[in-house]
Design a protein around this nucleic acid. Structure first.
Lengths: 109, 109
DNA sequence: ATTATTTATCGTAATATTGCGTTAGATATG
DNA sequence: CATATCTAACGCAATATTACGATAAATAAT
């Protein structure tokens, strides 16, 4: 036992969980904040700004990329990362849809 | 190795990651959707609506509670769960702050 | 008082995540 | 060509998460 029972849940629920998972680590939040504010988004620069080794940062970048939130282009030896605007907006919309679905019935408990 | 280096990151980053972590499983999304839409929020009802055992649901509820997103009151043998409105709103604000921090510089890569 | 119902907790197994050193492969630079 | 730089991927160890059955503790019902 222990495998997550993702398939028992809806696509919507899984999609939201996927985005949330990508955000579920302070290092990845830090990376996204850097990418959101900076022009420069070279991998090496990110490594310098974070208290983690190159290999660990690379792994976090991979997860963010797999979640769709960032993309990358190769520039010589270097790799440039940045936020995927489309997916970024979509994620925000989906997350807000959950938060806004709260009814206004106060004090059911 | 393997312990998360949370302390190396800012409080803001950790707080956001904490909320995201709470949302990072389809079962917990499903629970929150149920609580957001329903009046009834008795634990047993949630167990019936979810494809998970009672003990697993209980564990997910505990995590949501520890993240602050839900609260509970005891009603006899039963326990009533519901969304903590204050924290719910806060979480939404913090998450949107991250998404909105994206600059408009397109195509840095 | 006994029994049933409800939920949290404990213990355990399976998986997943986090983190790093090291290596490999690719492009630069001398 | 040889060497330096940059990043992804591999392998490993430490932790954390997910899931469940079984049990315990508390209240309700008979």
């Amino acid at each position: 036992m222990g495998a997550t029972k993702s398939l028992e849940f809806s696509m919507d629920e899984n999609r939201l969980a996927k985005y949330a998972k990508a955000l579920a680590h302070p290092a990845r939040i830090a990376i996204l904040k850097l990418l959101a504010s900076k022009q420069t988004c070279i991998c090496g620069d990110l490594v310098e700004e974070l208290p983690l080794s190159q290999s660990t940062v690379s792994q976090h970048l991979k997860e963010l990329k797999e979640a769709g939130l960032i993309k990358s282009t190769i520039d010589g030896v270097k790799v440039c990362y940045c936020i995927d605007e489309q997916e970024w907006k979509l994620a925000q919309i989906w997350i807000n849809q959950l938060f806004d679905s709260k009814n206004n019935c106060n004090e059911c408990c």
